[in-house]
Design a protein around this nucleic acid. Structure first.
Lengths: 105, 105
DNA sequence: GCTACGATTCGATGTACGTCAAACAATTGA
DNA sequence: TCAATTGTTTGACGTACATCGAATCGTAGC
């Protein structure tokens, strides 16, 4: 059965944690691809699309950092992981931030 | 005679550097106070206003990081340093970013 | 059950960063 | 010229973090 991986509530979003998450180029590449894809997407597909030169453990680590910051929601689907941007929550808490960081080009 | 301390041109702004600079709570406190003060302000006055519990060397280091990221402009005025936010440059390069990060308070 | 597969966790390693005390530099005023 | 003031640089220390290989976990399909 599908389940949602642990994530923070909107109220506990921490700007320091969020900016630290977005400061890393690899994580920002993932977020940019995810942000522009609109649809939820398979983690490995997204990783291919972002085309980082990183190992699977490292990419998995980055997904965890993004999720635990509150930027993404991850749902298990069999052996896959489906990830999406938490647009509404981010917009509610830090309006305009994602657009400003990821929106350019 | 007053002089402007070294700073990057708008074209060489690096989002990774900028987000890393803003990710630190102390630097963000300085930036928030500076952002809301509108006027250029003396560095030590700003540091008092931000009320960080940090030593002078550390605060000086943070000012340098902010300046070298392109977030601030610093001008020497005798023994003082006058610092201001590079609003126009930031708005041109990353529109909405400062407002999203510093505006909420 | 057993095997293959996708993804995470563990352990280790190198590097970057925040922090401070001490030393240094530059300016002001006597 | 000298001393006080203001801010920076240097050097050191501890911690946090990005990264990878190897081991582990959970699911799918036989």
């Amino acid at each position: 059965m599908p389940r949602t991986l642990p994530e923070p509530s909107v109220d506990s979003f921490d700007l320091t944690v969020i900016l630290s998450a977005l400061a890393d180029p690899g994580r920002r590449a993932l977020m940019t691809a995810l942000y522009h894809s609109q649809e939820p997407i398979d983690c490995s597909v997204l990783a291919d699309k972002a085309d980082l030169g990183l190992s699977n453990p490292t990419i998995s680590h980055h997904y965890r950092v993004l999720r635990e910051a509150g930027l993404t929601r991850t749902i298990t689907e069999g052996r896959q992981r489906i990830v999406r941007v938490r647009r509404d929550d981010m917009e509610k808490r830090f309006p305009g931030l994602l657009q400003a960081v990821l929106g350019s080009r």
